[in-house]
Simulated assay, not measured.
Amino acid sequence: MEQDQEQEQTADGGRAYRKIDRIRAADQILEDLRDRILRGELPHGSRFPPDRDLAERYGVSVATVREAVRALAALGLVRVRHGSGSFVTVRTETLIAVSMASAIQLESAPVTDVMDILGVVNSHAAGLTARHATDEQIAALRTCAEGLADLDDLDRAMDGLRDFLRRLAEPCGNPVLAAICVFLGEVQVELARELSQRGLLPLRRVAGALQQDRIAVVDALEARDPERAVRVTRAYHVHALDLLTSVPEAREVRCSDPSYTGLISSLMRTKLASLTR
C-alpha cells in the first residue's frame, strides 16, 4: 500500500498525473483536472499547464487534452487567453453563477420564480448579517437604502439596487450563500432594467413603493434582531414580487422570451469575463 502511494507522488511531492484509458479519455482528463482545481492544487490565477505537457503526463494526444480544456473553460474553471496561454479562474461566485444560470435556462423558470428564490435566500442571509455585520457595514447599507428613495435615472437606480442587495448579503459570514444572493440579485436588477426599458415597470413608482421596506430591513439589522431581519426582508421581496406581478405582461416573461434568454447568457459571459480582471 505504501509502495502504491509512493508511486502516486511526483519528484517534487505533488500528486502524479495518472495515465488515461483511450476510451472517453477527454472526460477522464476533465474529471481529474477539475478535481485538482477544486482541491486547490491548481489555484485561482495560476498559469494552467500547457497542452503538450498535459498530453505527455496523461499519455494522450494534444487534441484530446484541448477537448478537456475547452470543457473546463465552459465550466468557468479555466480562461484561455490566445497568445498567452490558459489560466485557472476558479471562484465560488462564478461556479454558482454558471450552474444557476444553466438551471434557470433548462427549466425555463419564470421571472417570478427567480425573484421568489432570491427572497428566500436573501431573508436567510439577512438574519445572519444581523449577527455578523459590522456597524460600518450596516451604516453603508443605510446610506445605500436612503439613496434609493427617489431616483429618476434608470442606470443610477439599477446600480443602487445592485449595491443594496450586495451589501445586504455579503456580510452574512457564509460565502456560498452570499454568492448565491449576489448572482440572483444581479438577475433581478437586470430584469428590472429590461422591464423598465419596455415600459412595463414604472421605475419611480416602484422605487418609492419599496423604500419603506428597505428602511425596515436596515432598522432590523441595526437592532441586531435576526428574526426580525428575516421577517422584514422576506416582506420586502414579497412586496417587490407583488409589484412585478401587478403587470400582466411582466408576469408572463419566461426564459422562452428572447430578451430573458439573452439576459441569462449575458450574465454568464460577464461573470466569466470578470475573472480575468
Rank of each mutant, 00 (worst) to 15 (best):
Q9S: 02
T10D: 04
D12A: 10
D12V: 11
G14S: 09
A16P: 08
A16F: 04
A16Q: 11
A16S: 09
Y17Q: 03
R18S: 06
R18Q: 11
K19V: 08
K19D: 09
K19Q: 14
K19A: 12
I20S: 05
I20Y: 13
I20C: 05
D21Y: 12
R22S: 15
I23V: 08
I23F: 11
R24G: 05
A25H: 12
A26L: 07
A26D: 11
A26F: 08
D27S: 10
D27V: 13
Q28H: 15
Q28A: 14
L30Y: 15
E31T: 12
E31N: 13
D32G: 08
R34N: 14
R34P: 14
R34F: 14
D35F: 10
R36N: 04
R36H: 05
I37N: 02
L38M: 13
R39V: 05
G40Q: 05
E41Q: 08
L42D: 02
P43N: 01
P43K: 01
P43V: 00
H44N: 13
S46M: 00
R47W: 00
F48P: 04
P49R: 07
P50N: 10
R52A: 06
R52Y: 02
R52W: 00
L54Y: 11
L54C: 10
A55C: 04
E56Y: 00
R57D: 01
R57H: 11
R57C: 02
G59N: 06
G59D: 04
G59S: 06
V60N: 04
S61H: 12
S61M: 12
V62Q: 08
V62Y: 02
V62C: 02
V62A: 03
T64G: 05
V65L: 11
V65N: 10
R66N: 13
R66K: 13
E67L: 15
E67M: 15
E67H: 13
V69H: 10
V69R: 14
V69C: 09
R70G: 01
R70Q: 05
R70W: 02
A71R: 15
L72E: 07
A73W: 03
A73I: 00
A73E: 12
L75K: 10
L75T: 06
L75V: 07
G76F: 09
G76M: 12
G76A: 11
V78R: 02
R79P: 06
R79Q: 12
V80A: 05
V80W: 07
H82Y: 06
H82W: 02
G83P: 09
S84Y: 07
G85N: 08
G85A: 08
S86Y: 06
F87N: 06
F87S: 07
F87T: 14
F87I: 13
V88Y: 04
T89R: 01
T89G: 07
T92F: 06
T94L: 08
T94P: 03
T94W: 01
T94V: 13
I96N: 09
I96W: 09
V98Q: 13
S99Y: 06
M100S: 14
A101D: 10
A101E: 08
S102G: 13
